[in-house]
Every structure is written in structure tokens, then in C-alpha cells.
């Protein structure tokens, strides 16, 4: 068992971890609760990824096939870890499919859950058909056609509302979801590309297209695709009798309330802790930080650690994370796991 790493979750982080484990000459067992691999980008049908611009099904698809074709990886789909015994070097996990996995170390790549906009009802999701989330809009982009779900008309105007389910103490979500600004700018460009007659407005309180995302997404969406950024956090979305949506805010630069008609309103939904985290914490005996994400161990010398020895984590399980960084962290966590096992072998000999 000291040659095996158990990886829970097969999103970008988990897939990256699995490949890193086998590349180091160890075996990986991947447990994924869904019937397919790929995690959020595949299951939610993301369109083009940030920042590569590759379609999710191609880019993450490559990661999936690399793992599926890897003889060093055993995959359990549609399964969860139900209980865990042992300690570093000799963990035994019982799976919901009846199988038992023994492994020397564990990587939790359990990711996140998209914020459910239904919890912010005044923004109209679930009330009006033309109020969508970014994931739904990405799915629409994937179909190659931009149309109002209510009646199929081509929208003249689309509003993207940032910070839906992020930075909002009213609903207990104090964190910034990090990537929505960039994703929204990207989405604005994709919409304009498919539907040049559609104008896209992004309502923001700050723009956080950090690092190299600045010019590639923020500037580009504005300069090349004429996306308009309006400094207003939206208060309420209602509908006017002609079926258009009315977006109510204060344009804080004009210092006036605004009530502006739109055809589609998109919620840039944030990243919640995986809704299974309480269960995951219990099964694996690890701690959660105060927002409900997996608690990170002291980071400087115990990189990718959790509160339990031999169990590591990575990616969005720790908190909102980009796909690229999740992939890197998956590799890092796998390295930590392998290093652990290596140390045990060294110690024994």
C-alpha cells in the first residue's frame, strides 16, 4: 500500500495529481462521485477556458484521457469514500461501491460547488427565464447561438452582474471568488463574437482581473469587444411588461439611481465550499476553515497539507481557485504524497 496514493475527485486538480503520482512511479487510485471525469469544467459544460482560450472539453478532455489511458491509475466512478481507517503509510478506505482501497497517502481534490443563485432571490434567478448564471451562459455559448431563453430573440443587451454569491455578508459569503471578473470579461467577448449586435454591460464594484488577466481579458473585452463596465452593484432585478428585465442599481460615478432595461441578465456566480465538505471533513477526519473550505495546514513547510498527516489537498477545495492553479496544486499535492511514501520506504530500509 505504500506505493499507492488515493485521490478523491477527478477535476483538473485531481487529474493533475493522478498523472503526477504515476509519473513518479507510484500508483494512483482515483475516486470520483460522478459518473464521468473532468470535474466542473466538463460537468457544467464550460465554454472556452481562461486563460488558454481552449474549449474545456478539449483541454480538460486531454487530462481525462491521459488519466484513463494510464495503466498506473485505477478509477472508481460514481463512488464516494464512506469511511477511512489507518494513518499515513497505511490508510484503508471503504468506498460506496463496496470496494476497499488501501493507500499510503491521500489527496483531496474535492473542489467546490457553484453558488446557487436561488439564494439571492432579489436578483431574479428562478423568477425570470432570462436571468441565467455564468455556467448556463457558457453552455449557451457552447451551442454557438445567443438567444433569450424566454422566447429565443437575439438580445440587444446583456448585463453581467459580478459578485453573485461572493463578497456578501448578507448570505454569509465573505470571500472573493477570484475568477468571476475574468470569466465574465471572457464571456462578454464570447457573446459579442457570436452575436455582434448584442451589447454587453458588466456591473461591478471592483474589477479583479489579477496578474496577466488584465490586458488579455479586461482590456481586451473593453477595447476590442466594446464591453461596457458600469460601477454599480445591482440591488434588484424585475421585469417590465414588455418582458425585458429591469436592472436596478446606483451608478456610483454618476451618483444617481439607475433602472435600465436588459434582455438577458447573467449572474457571475461565485465558488462555494463543496456542499459535501461537512461529510468529507467527517470521513477523512480533517478540519474546515471558517468559511467551510478545507483547512490548510501551515503552508510554508507543510505545503498542500491538511490538519491530518498523510492527507493533502489542492485546488478549489482550499478556496476559490483558477483552473490553471488547481492543476499546479494538484501536481504539488501529489508530489507531497509521493515524498511522504518515499520517506517511509527510506526510513524502513
Amino acid at each position: 500500500m505504500q506505493d499507492t496514493v488515493l485521490i478523491v475527485g477527478a477535476g483538473p486538480a485531481g487529474l493533475s495529481a493522478a498523472s503526477t503520482v504515476t509519473a513518479s512511479g507510484y500508483k494512483a487510485v482515483v475516486v470520483e462521485k460522478e459518473e464521468i471525469l473532468g470535474g466542473a469544467p466538463i460537468i457544467s459544460g464550460y465554454a472556452k477556458l481562461v486563460p488558454s482560450g481552449e474549449w474545456a472539453k478539449d483541454a480538460i478532455g486531454r487530462m481525462v484521457s491521459r488519466v484513463e489511458e494510464d495503466s498506473g491509475v485505477t478509477i472508481h466512478k460514481g463512488a464516494k469514500v464512506e469511511s477511512l481507517d489507518g494513518e499515513v503509510g497505511s490508510f484503508t478506505a471503504k468506498l460506496s461501491n463496496g470496494e476497499t482501497v488501501t493507500a499510503g497517502a491521500i489527496v483531496l481534490a474535492t473542489g467546490f460547488t457553484h453558488f446557487d443563485s436561488i439564494n439571492k432571490p432579489e436578483w431574479g434567478f428562478g423568477t425570470f427565464e432570462d436571468v441565467l448564471t455564468t455556467t448556463q451562459m457558457e453552455q449557451m455559448v457552447s451551442t454557438g447561438k445567443i438567444a433569450c431563453p424566454s422566447d429565443g430573440r437575439v438580445p440587444e443587451r446583456v448585463a453581467i452582474l459580478l459578485c453573485v454569491g461572493s463578497r456578501d455578508r448578507q448570505i454569509g459569503r465573505e470571500w472573493c471568488s477570484k475568477i468571476c471578473c475574468t470569466v465574465s470579461a471572457n464571456l462578454a467577448m464570447e457573446i459579442k463574437e457570436i452575436s455582434p449586435e448584442t451589447d454587453v454591460f458588466i456591473y461591478y464594484m471592483d474589477i479583479r482581473t489579477f496578474g496577466l488577466y488584465e490586458d488579455k481579458f479586461y482590456w481586451k473585452s473593453q477595447e476590442e469587444f466594446k464591453t461596457k463596465f458600469v460601477k454599480a452593484r445591482i440591488a434588484e432585478v424585475t421585469a417590465s411588461p414588455d418582458g425585458r428585465l429591469l436592472v436596478k442599481g446606483e451608478d456610483t460615478l454618476v451618483k444617481r439611481p439607475i433602472i435600465i432595461p436588459f434582455d438577458i441578465v447573467v449572474h457571475a456566480i461565485g465558488m462555494d465550499p463543496n456542499e459535501d465538505n461537512p461529510e468529507i471533513a467527517k470521513v477523512f477526519g480533517i478540519g474546515l476553515e471558517k468559511h467551510g473550505f478545507i483547512e490548510r495546514a501551515e503552508h510554508y513547510t507543510n505545503t498542500c497539507g491538511t490538519t491530518r498527516r498523510g492527507i493533502y489537498s489542492c485546488g478549489a477545495a482550499y478556496g476559490p481557485e483558477t483552473i490553471d492553479d488547481s492543476i499546479s496544486q494538484g501536481a504539488a499535492a501529489a508530489s507531497r504524497a509521493v515524498a511522504d511514501l518515499n520517506a517511509l520506504v527510506q526510513k524502513a530500509s
Binding site: R169, M205, R233, A235, K248, G249, E250, D251, P257
Partner: peptide, 26 residues
């Protein structure tokens, strides 16, 4: 009063702000 990022949501929904030069954000 916990802090303020000038997002304007208060003024957006303020009935007085719709008629007076008044802004809770301010």
C-alpha cells in the same frame, strides 16, 4: 457600519434617492 466599498446598492434601492439629491452611500 462594517465598512464600505462604494458599491451603491443602498442608494439603488433608496426611495429618497429617487427624488432627492440624497444618497445613503454618501
Amino acid at each position: 457600519l462594517n465598512g464600505c466599498l462604494n458599491c451603491g446598492i443602498c442608494t439603488a434601492t433608496c426611495p429618497a434617492a429617487h427624488f432627492y439629491d440624497y444618497s445613503p452611500r454618501e
